[in-house]
Simulated scan of single mutants.
Amino acid sequence: MQATIVTGAGGQLGRQLLRRAELRGVSPVGLGSRELDITDVDAVRGAVRPGDVVLNCAGYTAVDNAESDEAAAVRINVDGPRILATICAEVGARLIHVSTDYVFAGDADRPYEVTDVPDPATAYGRTKLAGEQAVHAVLPSAQVVRTAWVYTGAGTDFVATMLRLERERDVIDVVDDQLGSPTYSADLADGLLELATKPSAPPLLHLTNAGAATWYELARTVFASVGADPERVRPCSSAQFVRPAPRPAYSVLSNSAWTDAGLAPLRDWRAGLAAALDDLTSKTQGPAH
């Protein structure tokens, strides 16, 4: 029987895919790193069956650590996807592989199209690009979906961090010279699940919530959304937050290839954020009595 398999099911996107799939009446198979090592050929061969749809959310995402341990990032971001694609090709399964805006240099002045030439500036970006190429080399029909600035609002993502700092600090400084499209993981999951029903879609796609903002603008919107004074968020430059891996100054991806394929566009990032915060509130408060 055909199955929808989510690898990297323990991560924020993997968890949302399981949740959103259930809401669609699909019973997915969630495989976290403990259940499936995507770099183990035999393990992958034992997990994937003919007709399955594999959504690969597994990845080495420690962007700064990758600068000093690129070999570890290669193992998860290149070798793993290659093995998944190889087994999917062997048995006749589909593969949808999630990638990132970091494959681009981040110096554009207009949204990146799928036809733009990648030029990663970090080890993380290099390994994600190599992973895309490895997938398509062995399974040209696989669909690679690049996304950016993904959050849920829980754990340690940017929105969750802003919610915590709003409670802990009087003022915070947030970078205002990096531009991207904040993307709610539940919206991204819905898009990927729609793609899972359209095997004829192109092999390379971009998908984010619509619109763009800087981290500073996103932080101010988070503060305002929870009733806090957005003036407590102050703008600063990337130079004040130097990290081992440089962050792209421009991460906006064009969703035109997605919509041209007849797939539904994601809503504006502000509406996505409002939904994310509402969802967090409902989980905190629990069901009404």
Score class of each variant (00 low, 15 high):
124 Y>S: 06
46 G>C: 11
184 Y>P: 02
8 G>P: 03
223 F>N: 01
211 G>Y: 06
249 A>P: 05
288 A>E: 09
74 V>Q: 12
260 D>C: 04
116 D>K: 08
208 T>H: 05
263 L>C: 06
50 P>C: 11
282 S>E: 12
114 V>G: 06
172 I>W: 03
266 L>K: 00
202 P>R: 09
202 P>Q: 11
250 Y>Q: 04
286 G>F: 05
62 A>P: 02
279 D>G: 07
8 G>Y: 01
282 S>Y: 06
286 G>R: 08
9 A>S: 12
137 A>H: 12
51 G>T: 08
223 F>A: 08
152 T>R: 09
272 G>V: 03
28 P>M: 03
117 V>Y: 14
115 T>V: 15
245 A>V: 09
64 D>I: 05
165 L>N: 04
14 G>K: 00
87 I>C: 08
32 G>C: 04
24 R>G: 04
230 P>L: 05
190 D>Q: 12
255 N>C: 11
260 D>Y: 03
123 A>M: 09
16 Q>R: 14
84 L>T: 06
174 V>D: 00
176 D>T: 11
252 V>C: 00
15 R>M: 10
15 R>H: 10
190 D>E: 15
132 E>N: 10
253 L>T: 02
69 D>Q: 13
162 M>K: 02
262 G>K: 07
97 H>T: 06
85 A>F: 14
212 A>S: 15
78 V>E: 10
170 D>C: 14
165 L>A: 10
128 K>N: 05
239 A>S: 15
216 Y>K: 05
130 A>F: 05
104 F>V: 08
190 D>N: 15
245 A>I: 09
243 R>K: 15
215 W>K: 14
181 S>R: 01
123 A>E: 07
111 P>E: 07
253 L>R: 00
134 A>R: 01
252 V>M: 00
283 K>I: 07
135 V>P: 01
126 R>W: 10
89 A>K: 14
269 W>K: 01
145 V>R: 00
167 R>F: 09
